[in-house]
């Protein structure tokens, strides 16, 4: 294992341990997700719109908003007692810090998504059936991209006075492309459409991931160094 990856796992492990102790981000995001699903469930008219038609949009709106709530935590925890200085002071590459934060955020957001999906199935009575592996796959693909962007914006916002407000303002526009692509793929998966119909959207998601993971890793040092 490379030294940078080892250090990234050390940083991610610290974040996971801290979150498991406080459960601040996970609990808030889960309550938020449940609330969004309840509201959407009661807001729709089942005689006009079938649950299966609405489910992909509701799923991804919920994922996106819950992820924003979750990712706020990654760098606000570094603000306590000047802990970010302790990280920056250490003899570790800035890229390892970014990778560690990214891994921790992926774990948090992934957990929220894994717990939200059954809630959606429960509320909307949608049969994912054979589409489930595909939905899990597209969720992983889309989540990697927007969590990368969320991690870099979290680092950017943490030194400001309104970090909690600034993150969604910065992040939500960047979430639009992967969310649109993910909704399109999820709709087609639920409708049992062939994979060839989703190729373009999947390529968009892959390209988004490659571009933003690379870009965010490269600019992290400039973002956190004063």
């Amino acid at each position: 294992m490379s030294e940078a990856l080892r250090l990234a796992l050390v940083v991610a492990g610290k974040d996971l341990r801290a979150e498991l102790r406080s459960r601040t981000a996970l609990l808030s995001a889960l309550v938020f997700s449940a609330l969004v699903l309840v509201i959407f469930n009661f807001a729709r008219d089942p005689t006009v719109l079938a649950a299966a038609d609405l489910a992909p949009s509701v799923l991804w709106v919920t994922f996106a908003l819950a992820a924003t709530v979750t990712m706020n935590r990654a760098f606000t925890v570094e603000r306590e007692n000047g802990a970010l200085d302790g990280l920056l002071l250490a003899p570790i590459p800035r890229e390892a810090i970014f990778l560690g934060k990214l891994l921790a955020n992926l774990a948090f957001v992934g957990t929220v998504e894994a717990l939200t999906l059954p809630l959606l199935i429960l509320f909307f009575n949608v049969d994912f059936g054979r589409a489930l592996p595909g939905v899990v796959g597209v969720t992983a693909l889309a989540t990697l991209g927007f969590v990368s962007v969320g991690t870099i914006f979290g680092a950017m916002a943490v030194r400001t006075r309104f970090a909690e407000l600034l993150l969604p303002v910065l992040l939500l526009p960047f979430m639009v492309p992967p969310i649109i692509a993910a909704v399109q793929v999820t709709s087609r998966l639920l409708a049992g459409r062939p994979l060839s119909e989703m190729g373009g959207w999947l390529r968009l998601l892959t390209l988004y991931d490659i571009v933003f993971v690379t870009l965010c890793t490269m600019v992290f040092s400039a973002v956190v160094d004063e």
Binding site: K14, R17, A18, E19, R21, S22, V77, E80, N81, G82, A83, D85, G86, L89
Partner: peptide, 12 residues
């Protein structure tokens, strides 16, 4: 570095 802040995480 010994800062006027502890650089410690409150949840750990």
């Amino acid at each position: 570095l010994l800062s006027h802040q502890s650089l410690l995480y409150d949840d750990l």
